[in-house]
Structure formats: C-alpha cells, structure tokens
Computed example of a mutant assay.
Amino acid sequence: MGVFDSLRKKRKSGSGQVRTASKQDTTHLDEWASSRRGVEAFVEPRTHVTETTVLLVAHDGEWTRRRISSADAAFEFAKKRSMPIYEVERVGYPKRMREYQARQKRERG
C-alpha cells in the first residue's frame, strides 16, 4: 500500500467531501446579524477546502462565518437586509475584525 493510497480511497468513497450551504447556515447568519449593529458582509471565494462563505462583521469587530451557495447568493442575502457587502479578494478583511481577535486573545490569557 502506497503513501497516498488511503487518501485516494477516502476521496473515492465520498468522505472528505466539501459540505455545501444549508438552511441552518442562513438562519445563523440572519439571527447573528439581527442581534448586532453595524454589520457588514464579506464574500470569501470558494477554495479547494470550502465552498463560498460569507463573513459578517459587526461594528466592534465581532464576526461569524458560514457557507453560502454562491457569491450571487451572498450579494442577495446582503441586499435583502440592506447590508453593505464586499469581496474579500478586493478589499481584504476589516481592521476592526483583526483588532477584535487580538482583544479576545489578550483576554483569554
């Protein structure tokens, strides 16, 4: 048995497949956005590891990320909620998000 045989076997058996967006993902995004203020959306492109995702960032930098079916679906999600939306590949991640993560890390120890 070769080094990569077990990986090929997993790929053929269907395990390790990328999970697609679900209704629970959209519900989470809705609930999260409605309970915070100043929320903006950032679309993250599909990769080899994950499907397209939408990142929501609140005014203070708190954030959440969930899968979404496509970039178009992310733009529609934001439009329905009158939420600004950006493409991460074009604008990058917001500074307030990085600052929030740094604060959380300091507070934990």
Rank of each mutant, 00 (worst) to 15 (best):
M1H: 15
V3G: 15
V3S: 15
F4T: 14
L7T: 02
K10A: 15
R11T: 07
K12G: 08
S13D: 14
S15R: 12
G16F: 04
V18N: 02
V18M: 03
R19K: 15
T20N: 11
A21W: 01
S22T: 15
Q24N: 03
Q24P: 00
L29E: 01
D30K: 10
D30L: 11
D30Y: 08
E31N: 13
A33N: 02
S34R: 14
R36G: 01
R36C: 04
R37P: 03
G38N: 09
A41I: 04
A41L: 08
V43D: 00
V43L: 07
V43C: 01
E44R: 10
P45S: 04
T47V: 08
H48A: 11
H48F: 07
V49C: 01
V49G: 02
V49H: 07
T50K: 10
V54C: 07
V54W: 01
L55D: 05
V57K: 00
D60E: 03
T64L: 09
R65G: 07
R67A: 11
R67N: 12
S69W: 02
A73C: 05
E76S: 08
F77I: 02
A78S: 03
R81K: 06
R81Y: 05
R81T: 05
M83E: 11
M83F: 11
P84G: 15
Y86A: 10
E87H: 05
V88N: 05
E89F: 07
R90S: 12
V91F: 06
G92C: 10
Y93D: 09
P94A: 09
K95M: 14
R98P: 01
A102M: 11
A102E: 14
A102S: 13
K105F: 06
R108M: 00
G109Y: 03
